[in-house]
């Protein structure tokens, strides 16, 4: 019965396609991350480029604006020590933020970074950031959290202000 066999192999192919597409749905998750890294889609700043060579462009100034949002689930204070910085592309800078646990409990929190405008995201590289890992806080602990970053000289010329925003989440609620 040749037709029977034809059906079997075609059905098998189609089922493989179905399963593959189901897998593809999940594969989109890492693909999306790669896509975001490359294009700056989603406003995600670059995490730690291995070769962050300093090549300062002293003729150009870019304003870095720090914005913090504490999610209403987190009973924390969280703010930048300075809210604006003027930087030269290609030069390394440091900034600190201060977070304070307002509860008398041990807390685990995380700051989630985002960049605006989106076209700047791929050109903003964090060398070191408290946002890379979750942060443990003792009851009522207040502490400074460091950030080290560099703005890539290839930043499009129509960008003169970069907003780095952190949303502070309590991971236990």
């Amino acid at each position: 019965m040749p037709e029977h066999d034809d059906n079997r192999s075609l059905v098998a192919q189609l089922l493989i396609m179905t399963v593959a597409m189901f897998g593809f749905g999940f594969l989109l998750v890492p693909l999306y991350d790669v896509f975001c890294e490359i294009t700056g889609f989603g406003g995600r700043p670059n995490a730690a480029a291995a070769a962050a060579v300093e090549m300062p462009d002293l003729k150009r100034e870019v304003r870095i604006q720090f914005v913090t949002t504490v999610n209403s689930n987190a009973r924390f204070e969280f703010a930048p020590d300075v809210s604006n910085m003027t930087v030269h592309p290609g030069k390394m800078y440091y900034a600190t933020f201060t977070a304070k646990n307002l509860t008398s409990q041990h807390k685990v929190a995380q700051a989630v970074p985002s960049i605006a405008p989106v076209s700047a995201a791929e050109h903003f590289t964090k060398i070191e950031c408290f946002c890379f890992t979750t942060q443990d806080f003792l009851p009522n602990e207040e502490r400074a959290m460091p950030l080290q970053f560099i703005v890539n000289p290839e930043l499009p010329e129509y960008v003169d202000t970069i907003t780095l925003q952190y949303t502070f989440f309590d991971l236990e609620t």
């Binding site: 396609m17 179905t18 597409m21 593809f24 749905g25 998750v29």
Partner: peptide, 14 residues
């Protein structure tokens, strides 16, 4: 349908 219904299934599973 075969190409995209499984993707929806994946998304709602997530």
């Amino acid at each position: 349908l075969i190409a995209v219904m499984p993707v929806l299934a994946g998304a709602v599973t997530m």
